[in-house]
Structure formats: structure tokens, C-alpha cells
Amino acid sequence: MAVCIAVIAKENYPLYIRSIPAENKLKFHYMVHTSLDVVEEKISTVGKALVDQRELYLGLLYPTEDYKVYGYVTNSKVKFVIVVDSSNTALRDNEIRSMFRKLHNSYTDVMCNPFYNPGDTIQSKSFDTMVSGMMLQAC
């Protein structure tokens, strides 16, 4: 179960960010912002095999005391960040991967909506529904 999901444009501003509970919003925004540095590091590393350079999924970006932050970068340089509760030990790597897959598929659909202007914040109902599904899922 995700507590925060974010989509960041290639220019590093948020296209979409949602988190629960509401009072932690600022904290999560900050967390996502911090994670971007780690993302940059992971994808620009040449020679050092920190992560399989060809993979879109970046794995765990960094852990905090209460949370784990995961990252993913598309070929269009859009970043997805998923924050999960650390106490949720049942969540496996392949489940995180599949969450990113869903995000990616929905994002691609948004990009193909002719009424969506690339670079704008995402205001799609079906995207919202997909994200809700990932945030309210029982663990």
C-alpha cells in the first residue's frame, strides 16, 4: 500500500502528487523532492553498476525510519516515485514493480489523450482512479 505517489516531469517539477494521510503532505513533498537527487545519481552513473542501466525500474532509492522510497524513470525522462510504509514488510519487490507498471501504463494513456497538453499537471479521472486503487489497497 502506497502512502505517496508522484509523477515528476523531466524538468523536475511535479505533474502529479498524491499522499495519505493529508497532514503529512508537506513531508511527502519534501521526500519526493529529495528522492530526485538519488534518481539523477542512479541514472547518470556511468561505469559504476549501481543499477542495471537499461532498466526503467530503479528499485529502492532510499529508506527512512518510517518509509521506503522507490523510483522509476521512463524513456521520456518522466520519473515516478512511490513511497511505502516501512512497516509493510509484506510488500515485495515484484509488487512494487507491478505498481510502477500500472503507473506507466496509465501515464502513457494520459499522454495519448489529445486534450492533455504535455507538461501540464495530470488531471485525468482514470489516472486518479488507478492511483486510488494503489493507495487504498489492503496489504
Binding site: 537499461r54 524513470v73 521520456s76 499522454m111
Partner: peptide, 19 residues
């Protein structure tokens, strides 16, 4: 241009990262 953006997003969804 707009069509190209959309198409590429779809076409590169399952490909590896470009070198």
C-alpha cells in the same frame, strides 16, 4: 509533433533505456 510525442510514449513503454 503532438502525435509523435504520444506515439513515442507508447512505443518506448516496454523498451530498455536508451544508451
Amino acid at each position: 509533433f503532438r502525435v509523435g510525442q504520444g506515439l513515442i510514449e507508447r512505443f518506448t513503454k516496454d523498451t530498455a533505456r536508451f544508451k
